[in-house]
């Protein structure tokens, strides 16, 4: 879910750009030079995954897949999602350059939080109390909910007339939230079976 060019107020855009710059700074400092190919390949893979049409009822939705990016990349999700959004704006014209900061923050900040929450659950919860795929599903659902809330908040703070649009946008996140939770849980189950070491956080 992108917010387009031309809608948000200047202070909101400036705040988004500054917060994203901060997040990018932290994310880049946590990546070592050796991690660059790994992070870039995962960025490319997440970008491709976000192009998939996932059937839902009679229609299809696109994944945002930021929750999973947060689980696998940690703080490096900031640069990864920034590059993904930049390329989407440049290659397809989704989103836009002026809203890049806001869109990056609204997807990456929940991703980092959701990633930390998942790893906290993984380390702290007694064995078998909460299964990891279930934890991943819950964390990614929470992540999309937070992205939806942030998107609604930037609209509402931009103009008083955007209230209804913000509520509609928030409602549009609900199906994505469900589908992302189901898919992320299955993806984590798949990775646990094939390469459990992947879920060790790096950055």
């Amino acid at each position: 879910m992108h917010i387009s060019d031309g809608i948000l107020a200047p202070p909101v855009l400036a705040a988004g750009a500054l917060l994203s710059a901060g997040g990018l700074g932290i994310g880049l400092r946590r990546i070592r030079d050796e991690d660059i190919p790994r992070t870039a390949m995962l960025t490319a893979a997440f970008f491709v995954a976000s192009l998939i049409h996932v059937p839902l009822g009679p229609s299809t939705v696109h994944l945002i897949i930021n929750g999973l990016a947060g689980i696998i990349l940690g703080w490096a999700a900031f640069p990864a999602l920034f590059i993904g959004l930049l390329l989407q704006a440049l290659l397809f014209g989704y989103g836009g350059l002026s809203v890049l900061g806001v869109n990056t923050f609204n997807t990456a900040a929940p991703a980092v939080l959701c990633g930390s929450l998942f790893h906290l659950l993984r380390r702290r919860s007694p064995d078998g109390l909460i299964k990891l795929p279930v934890a991943a599903g819950l964390c990614t659902a929470l992540c999309i909910a937070m992205t939806g809330l942030l998107n609604a908040v930037v609209l509402i703070t931009s103009h008083s007339r955007f209230m209804n649009a913000a509520l509609a946008l928030l409602a549009a996140h609900v199906p994505v939230m469900i589908i992302e939770a189901v898919l992320s849980a299955s993806i984590i189950a798949f990775l646990l079976k094939t390469r459990p070491d992947l879920l060790e956080p790096r950055a």
């Binding site: 190919p37 790994r38 870039a40 390949m41 995962l42 490319a44 893979a45 491709v48 995954a49 998939i52 996932v54 696998i72 898919l183 299955s186 993806i187 189950a189 798949f190 990775l191 094939t194 390469r195 992947l198």
Partner: peptide, 17 residues
């Protein structure tokens, strides 16, 4: 679809290595 995305992630990591 989850298996396909998971497989894609694994291949991206192997390629990165």
């Amino acid at each position: 679809l989850a298996a396909m995305v998971g497989q894609l992630l694994l291949r991206s990591l192997d390629r990165a290595e």
